[in-house]
Design a protein around this nucleic acid. Structure first.
Lengths: 216, 216, 216, 216
DNA sequence: CATGAATGAGACTTCATTCAT
DNA sequence: TATGAATGAAGTCTCATTCAT
């Protein structure tokens, strides 16, 4: 009869995480507007009322989800880059690779789709997302390209558009995974790893200084 | 005072266009779910009921908007490619360039954002969009790459992932324009033309066979 | 090219009948509230606007339908009764028989269902229907019963409730025909003629004076 | 001033009954289509939304009303018949009498009017009503007639049409009560008890074997 | 803290009726 | 006369949020 359950205090501490996890999953699946708050609560195993005990509105819940999930991804990338010692070409390949693995592993990458789609109905989210996500990601990639140039591995190129070009397929794959990729549709098969490899390959061909000093 | 109105019949002929225009603009701004049908009607200068005279539901209206706007873009690209006579590198640059101009010119590109965001709540849209938009666009880019290979201009590469990589920045820019780009936010400035140029440049470096036998 | 059509004046004269016929059929099928005025117009081969040229509202159209169809039925019954010469038992059998044939032949009988169902939402219809339909029908049946009593054929009975009892199965059959009878349902089969015969048989057994002085 | 309200849980338990009562009354008064769900809610003392907490649609609410009210009536009749010990003539009189009292007492009988009127717009209701109401009622009356025949009290007659004829006036009265009978109209006064008595009297005269073997 | 019954603003859609042509 | 495009009130149902328990 005595079902063992965590003590009250313990529950209180884990609730937010349960709610954020449930919300992440549902927001990514259905979008912000189409996700009902009761669904989130029940997916987290609590009642509607409890959700509102922790977050004053669906909007605040959404912001909390974004905050918790995305910033983390970015900083993890930063650490990997800082610690890397090999060639910049290898660094770039590795960065795309491990980042994709992380993004692929959780639903966090799906938030980009949701933010992208609903940021215009959510003006306060825009600056937050720009500061916390977009700018750091840019800085990360620009830093890598700069490293390649500084070390004489890459041709001198404009950082901003090149960083865009480097990130674009990654973002594209993230978006795809949580949108068309989740529909039972017969489109052109998207193989993320192959796409990233093709992309890295082309990029590096394009970025690198000629490997022989010969051709003039 | 006597404002002269167009005659009835004339109005009937232009209503669908008025409604589609208003709907395009609002769907792109707010998304499908968040756009109220009455808003569309009133933006088109008619009443709620009139909208339903022309489209039986918000969903059908949306499909009509997609059909009218996107399919057109794709076929225009196809024609430009078919008619082109120069080198494949130039063709690729041109294709990205004119396509961006078209996409940039209307809100049509913004539909991709909306579909991306809401396709999972809209299952019937998925196949339609895959067939009408995604597949044709792929065929277009794969065709161009194949042309380059056939003519000995490009290295032999895998078509599908390369087509993805080629389109990715375009899509990225389209999405950006109608999402963060429309918010009054201070992020890294995205210069579409520069991004596309940087991208094309890198891509071509990566795709092209070594240009001379000379550099050795 | 010159499709021959009736002249204008001619059209004007037949429109009301076309509209009333279409309306009768649709009101009986769907009821008053559920019948859309456009359906009536289009079943009559005219446009919505034309309907309103002849009847100022759906309600007035309905009243016109009732007026035209029901009063006719009653008076026909009256004539048949007045002309009859045989025994009252035969008269009653004949009355039920020919009345059923008339009612069965057109949709007019179905109006009873509609009036029954919607008279409470239509207060002005109530008195009209009582005066034009219910009272005359009662008078008719009461007259027949009185005739039987007067001629010594029937036991002396109370006219009003006996008239009710006589009409009840007829009404029941009319209602059934246009309601459950029109649904693809497997209920107890209702055979109108058999029901009326069984009913007449029982009624006459009950009404008639003992035919012999014998049984005591 | 402080009106003491029942506690929450208690309210939840009584809501369905409050809603069904309100719905019965309004559906019988106005019909299904013409009854607005908000009216039902407010007649039950709750808000629009609360109604939908208990019944997922107006249609389901209606079915629940039918289920609760009519099925009950039928089974009560069945019990009364099973328990009866006297002559079949007396049984028939009693059955009509107590049934009328029950029907007259609540609005339940009025549902027949509503179903009759709207079943054609409500196809799924047809079979439900046939199975739950019409067939059981037939079985009940056919059983009584069979009992009379088996016990040598009644002439051998065809069960189905006779059952129809027996029920017809009852149904007629039920319909009348909730239709014209509820309108402030001066028609022929319908005295239900007298009508049923007249009817039973005629029926029994018709059904019963001649009490003497004499008349030929 | 937690619950879930209750609310009511608001969304989509329908349709009787009008009126310019 | 006849048309049918247009209107907008009204109806069904949803769901974010509140609050008594």
């Amino acid at each position: 009869m005595a079902s063992t359950r965590p003590p009250r205090q313990r529950l209180k501490d884990i609730r937010p995480q349960q709610l954020l996890d449930a919300a992440l999953s549902l927001f990514v699946e259905k979008g912000f507007a189409a996700t009902r708050s009761e669904e989130v609560a029940s997916a987290a195993g609590v009642s509607k009322g409890t959700l509102y005990l922790y977050y004053p509105s669906k909007e605040e819940l959404f912001k909390a989800v974004v905050r918790q999930n995305i910033s983390k991804l970015i900083s993890q990338g930063g650490e990997a880059v800082a610690a890397f010692e090999g060639s910049t070409a290898e660094l770039l390949v590795m960065l795309l690779d491990i980042w994709w693995d992380r993004v692929d592993d959780s639903d966090a990458g799906g938030l980009h789709k949701v933010v992208l789609a609903e940021v215009r109905n959510f003006p306060e989210l825009a600056q937050f997302y720009a500061d916390e996500v977009i700018l750091p990601a840019h800085r990360l990639f620009e830093g890598v390209v700069q490293r390649g140039i500084d070390r004489g591995e890459f041709r001198p190129v404009e950082l901003v558009p090149v960083a865009h070009a480097l990130m674009a397929p990654m973002i594209f794959l993230m978006l795809h995974k949580h949108s068309f990729g989740a529909c039972p549709v017969h489109g052109p098969d998207v193989d993320p790893k192959a796409t990233l490899r093709a992309h890295a390959d082309l990029m590096l061909h394009g970025l690198m200084r000629d490997r022989s000093g010969t051709h003039r």
